[in-house]
Structure formats: C-alpha cells, structure tokens
Design a protein around this nucleic acid. Structure first.
Length: 273
DNA sequence: CCTTATGCCTGAATGC
DNA sequence: TGCATTCAGGCATAAG
C-alpha cells in the first residue's frame, strides 16, 4: 500500500518519463476512478495539455498541467501508475489511460479505492483533501515540538493518531508500526502521554524510516510497484509489520498482533513501553 | 472538536 | 474439489 516513500518513488519514476510531454488522449475505462467530474468533460479538459511538474503532498500525487489545471491522485491500497514507452493493452483493472507524446501512462487499481481528481492548480493547497493534512514529516518544519502539539489533544491510542493524516501526512500502517518499534514506544500508549524524550525518539524514527523507505524505493510487501513496474526493497528491512507471532529480532520474544481501530498492529511487548 | 462506525472493492488465503 | 468466509486497509462520510 503506497505510503509516503512509495508515493515519492512513484513521483520520481514518473518524472523520468512524463515531464514536458503532452497528453494527447485520455480514456477513462471506469468512471468511478475520477472524482467530481463526468468522464467526457474530464477527458476534454485534460486532453492536449502538457505536463509541467509532478509533486507530492502526503500520499497524494500532484500532476501539474499547462493551463493551470492539476491532477490529484491517491493510490489508496492497490493503485498504480505505469509508464510504457509503447502501446500496451490495458489490464483488467486499468481505469485510466493517458496517451502521451512519448508513450502511455496507465492508472490501474484492483481494489478500486484509488481516485483521480482534476482541480485548478491555484486551488490545490486549498483543496479539502490537501489542506487538512498535517506537516510533511521530511520537511525541516517538522520538529518533535510540532509532533507533540499535534498529539496533545488526542487521548486515543498513539498508533491510531499516527495514522490520522491530520497529525502527520504520509504515514500508513507499515511505517507507523515500524516507527513505533524503532522508537521503543507501545502503539497502545495514549497519544498525549509521551515525554519530551519519547517525542524526540518517535520524531527521529519517523524521519529515519521514511527516508530509508525512499532510499530503498519503497516497500513491496504485496502490490506496490513504481511507475516502471519495479519493486522496492524495504520489505527486507521490516522489523514488525507482517511478523505477528514471529520472534522479535531484538529480544527474541514473540511479537504481539492485535487490531487497533480496525487496523492490524504488530509490536513487541518487551521492547516497546 | 474528538471519537467511532460504515462503506467502498477484489483477490488471496483460510475453513469446512 | 468447491463453496463460503475472512482478511488486507486509507479515507470520506455520518452519527454520537
């Protein structure tokens, strides 16, 4: 499931191919993939525009087009962007095909949770989906103090709070569990109960792991691939995610698996307090 | 404001 | 073997 490091990797691999290319044709194969537009006006509005830049905000991809329109895309769990330099028949779950001057860009999503939005570029930062997002964890303005302020009003379990994009943008189930393990803090702790020292440790773990995830081109635990169809390698570095019942690499005791707010959570009772 | 529940989806894995 | 059930889970939305 694409979290911040995976979306960033998709962004980077897309940039290798689609910058300055013109979108010559658009085909929406499943209307549900486009939010807020009927498919005909969407296709007409996007067609003929050049791609100027590709940005990321949290788990959102922002594809800025000539003429002050931007495509916002969220991959949710199984969404993918694939670039092909020759014509390719769409797969079963390919919902959008963008024909570019130099190839094709396919948006494919088995589970159909992912969405593409078209908004005026000037309204991107004001768009409800983006403006509610918390700080970018890899930017300099994300500090332990900011993290503490974001968690201060929350009495819910820390893990739940970390998955809330209003607290920090870009964490999902994998990097949340990994960050908590690295920081040695239990996912069950009340979000507002962390000491200054613990906030620093958590802040450091979040940044270190997200950066390591990017450096490894993401985590391909199941479905994730970059825009070239390549897997990442960070799944090899995972300490707790997907390892419920197995032994902790640090202390050797079995890892606890439980459900927290509907999400599977894995942690070490001995190493995380 | 905060918190919790529900719906959206398909394919792989599991149970009988 | 085949059928039914469970699980994976990010986010919008509604209700408390």
């Amino acid at each position: 499931m694409p979290e911040l490091p995976e979306v960033e990797t998709i962004r980077r691999t897309l940039c290798q191919h689609i910058l300055r290319q013109t979108i010559e044709d658009v085909l929406i194969r499943w209307p549900g993939a486009v939010k807020g537009w009927d498919i005909f006006p969407f296709e007409q509005e996007v067609k003929g525009r050049r791609i100027l830049s590709v940005d990321r905000r949290g788990k959102y991809l922002l594809i800025h087009l000539e003429g002050d329109w931007s495509l916002l895309a969220h991959m949710r769990m199984t969404g993918r962007f694939n670039f092909y330099d020759e014509h390719r028949e769409p797969e079963k779950h390919t919902h959008a095909v963008f024909t570019l001057s130099n190839g094709e860009l396919h948006f494919t999503d088995t589970r159909k949770f992912g969405r593409i939005l078209l908004v005026p570029t000037g309204e991107c930062s004001n768009h409800p989906s983006l403006c509610i997002l918390g700080p970018e964890p890899l930017e300099d303005d994300f500090t332990p103090k900011i993290l503490g302020e974001r968690l201060k009003r929350r009495n819910a379990a820390l893990k739940i709070a970390l998955l809330d994009q209003k607290v920090v943008a870009g964490l999902g189930n994998i990097y949340a569990d990994e960050s908590l393990f690295r920081a040695g803090i239990s996912p069950l702790r009340a979000a507002n109960s962390l000491s200054r020292k613990e906030l620093s440790a958590l802040h450091d773990s979040i940044r270190t792991l997200l950066q390591a995830g990017i450096d490894a081109q993401g985590t391909s635990f199941r479905d994730y691939r970059d825009a070239n169809g390549e897997k990442g390698s960070f799944q090899k570095a995972l300490q707790v995610y997907g390892r419920g019942g197995e032994n902790c690499y640090r202390c050797g005791r079995p890892l606890i698996k439980l459900r927290l707010g509907g999400r599977t959570t894995v942690y070490c009772l001995h190493c995380q307090k």
